[in-house]
Structure formats: structure tokens, C-alpha cells
């Protein structure tokens, strides 16, 4: 399979590999897997409690080149964004940026899932969504 230059660049020089302190209340951790291939990805964000801006992001991926590139790109993208902005990132954006072929789309989905899981974890720790979600659920009924 021919990887695009951008994939190769992220693969050879992955940005933000590593980990953040899982137990910190400012850190959200997303651990996700792709059942299609059995690959796993962990993405972590560190959020400023005042501004809700993601100040730090790290990842660790055991998987294919596209998954590594997708998660590397995802950490670059979320940094400096607020939680709400980061939620807007979709796998389609990643596919476009990295020019992923159709068989590699699930790798980008993994990265999107990881962002959402990390944000979800942070929200849960900080009691952010619960209220909003309950309110929404009530409103929907």
C-alpha cells in the first residue's frame, strides 16, 4: 500500500507521543480500539479548567501507519482548541488531510473516537456534561 507523504511524515516523526498523568483531574484519557483489525490507540488531553482550552495532548498507538498518523495529527489539531472546538473534528477531516484510501478510513475513525473518548473522560471527571446531558434527555422526552 502506498502511503501519502503526509502519512509517512507523521509516521516517521510522530508528534506528541507519550502520556499524561491519568489521575490528574485536568487530564482526559481515551483508550479505543478498532475491532476491524485489532489495533489500539490511547489519546490524552490536558485541559485548562478556566478556559477549557486543550493545552497539551499526547498519544500512543499500537497499529498501522495510518492509525499512527491519524492520532499524531489529531493531537496536533486539538492542541490550542477548546473542548467544544475539538469536538467538531471528524474523521473525514483526517481522511482529507492525510489522503487516506478507503480501506484506511477506519484508522481515522479510531482517531476521532479517541478524541471523543478523551473529552468524554475529562467531562466525566469534571462533572461537565452530566448536567447538560440530563437536561437534554429531559427536554427530548
Amino acid at each position: 500500500m502506498a502511503y501519502s507523504d503526509k502519512v509517512i511524515d507523521h509516521y516517521n516523526n510522530p508528534r506528541n507521543v507519550g502520556q499524561l498523568d491519568k489521575s490528574s483531574s485536568e487530564v482526559g484519557t481515551g483508550l479505543v480500539g478498532a475491532p476491524e483489525c485489532g489495533d489500539v490507540m490511547r489519546l490524552q488531553i490536558k485541559v485548562n479548567p478556566e478556559t477549557q482550552v486543550i493545552e497539551e495532548a499526547k498519544f500512543k498507538t499500537f497499529g498501522c501507519g495510518s492509525a499512527i498518523a491519524s492520532s499524531s495529527l489529531a493531537t496536533e489539531w486539538v492542541k490550542g482548541k477548546t473542548i467544544e472546538e475539538a469536538m467538531q473534528i471528524t474523521n473525514t477531516d483526517i481522511v482529507k488531510e492525510l489522503a487516506l484510501p478507503p480501506v484506511k478510513i477506519h484508522c481515522s475513525v479510531l482517531a476521532e473516537d479517541a478524541i471523543r473518548a478523551a473529552i468524554g473522560d475529562w467531562k466525566k471527571k469534571n462533572g461537565v456534561t452530566e448536567g447538560a446531558e440530563v437536561a437534554q434527555a429531559v427536554a427530548a422526552n
Binding site: L31, E36, V40, F62, I105
Partner: peptide
């Protein structure tokens, strides 16, 4: 099987047991 993106987020999550992921990682 190769669900690109599942509409139903919840259904997809349940496909990957969290304890197994931890172990794999």
C-alpha cells in the same frame, strides 16, 4: 464487519470491551 463509521456510537463501543482494550494496551 468493516464498519467505517457506525451511526450508533453506543453500539460501536459495546463491540470493544474496555477491559480487553486495557489489557491489549
Amino acid at each position: 464487519l468493516e464498519a467505517g463509521k457506525s451511526e450508533d456510537g453506543a453500539a460501536k463501543e459495546s463491540r470493544v470491551p474496555a477491559d480487553l482494550l486495557e489489557e491489549v494496551f
